[in-house]
């Protein structure tokens, strides 16, 4: 197997940050619909990271560009080819970023004086606070998170990515890491008492689901075409085994799952620094998930293997 010139780690960072940002806003919007009052600290925390993380993610995408970086007018061309997943993504990201910006501004109450002064209050409030806004954010947020996987998934050249389960996995991971991100911010900046058990429960199930999906994906990959199998093996036993088992499986999934399970069972209570720590583990896991899937995928079969088979 030969390693193809793949994406840089920048791209993994982008996939990860876009996921966290979008995930946190999706969960916050759902909470908003459910009971804004109860979850307001969470919503605020999510608003702090939502749009900024997605934007930082896009920045990573930007610095990964070749000549587009110093010829920014070329970026307009990103919209010209409707068959390109990048075009879809650019569109989705643009909409999501604008919407989540409005939403964030509203939730955090920043720029209020400005909006007042400009006399926007009458238009701004009803839009930003509307259910329509919430649902738009949920939809574009899920699309954003899913898109990061579709970007990879449409490439039939890379069988390990070319799986329907990949977008699902990424959406789940985005929600999970989004919750973690918002939780960390909440613990650090919005310390008011809040009862977020429902979110914690959801988080636990998301992690469990993620574990199951990952197992399923790898099992399927092991039975797949040679490249796919090879990709799975690089994770399980090969080149990336250490990162896979330590950072993704152990620290990123198993440890948080255990802890949250104990919390669920009422056997344990974590908050403050401890909570931040475990949520950070989830985030680390989220990053490694993107990084590992990105790198394990890009192996191609040597073409000679195709004729050797006939001998």
């Amino acid at each position: 197997m030969e390693f193809q010139t793949g994406f840089h780690w920048y791209i993994a960072v982008y996939l990860f940050l876009a996921g966290v940002g979008a995930g946190s806003i999706v969960v916050a919007s759902l909470a908003d619909i459910y009971d804004r009052q109860k979850y307001i600290s969470f919503i605020k925390a999510a608003s702090v990271i939502g749009m900024p993380l997605v934007t930082i993610g896009i920045l990573f995408l930007y610095i990964d560009l070749g000549q587009g970086m110093y010829k920014p007018w070329l970026l307009l061309l990103l919209f010209v080819n409707p068959t390109s997943a990048i075009m879809w993504g650019t569109l989705i990201l643009t909409i999501f970023t604008v919407l989540s910006l409005l939403y964030g501004v509203y939730n955090l109450g920043i720029l209020d004086w400005f909006i007042k002064k400009m006399g926007f209050v009458k238009i701004f409030r009803p839009i930003a606070a509307s259910r329509f806004m919430n649902w738009s954010l949920i939809i574009t947020g899920i699309l954003t998170a899913g898109y990061t996987a579709v970007l990879l998934g449409v490439l039939k050249a890379i069988p390990f990515w070319h799986q329907t389960s990949l977008p699902i996995l990424f959406i789940i991971s985005a929600s999970s890491t989004g919750i973690s991100g918002a939780m960390v911010v909440k613990e650090l900046f919005f310390k008011e008492e809040a009862h977020l058990e429902k979110i914690e429960t959801t988080h636990f199930y998301l992690i469990m689901l993620e574990i199951l999906l990952l197992i399923g994906m790898l099992l399927i990959a092991l039975q797949g075409v040679p490249e796919m199998k090879f990709s799975a093996l690089t994770l399980l036993t090969g080149e990336f085994a250490v990162e896979f088992w330590v950072f993704l499986v152990l620290l990123g999934l198993v440890v948080p799952a255990f802890v949250f399970a104990f919390v669920e069972a009422g056997k344990m209570h974590v908050s403050g620094g401890k909570l931040v720590f475990f949520e950070l583990l989830v985030l680390v896991g989220g990053y490694f998930l993107r990084y590992l899937i990105l790198h394990a995928g890009v192996y191609t079969q040597k073409f000679t293997d195709y004729i050797m088979i006939h001998y």
Binding site: E2, G66, G68
Partner: peptide, 19 residues
Amino acid sequence: KCVGCRYCIPSCPYNARFF
């Protein structure tokens, strides 16, 4: 026209492209 997004590189099943 190329912005250098590198997307086409892994898209090619023949490992024909590079940056």
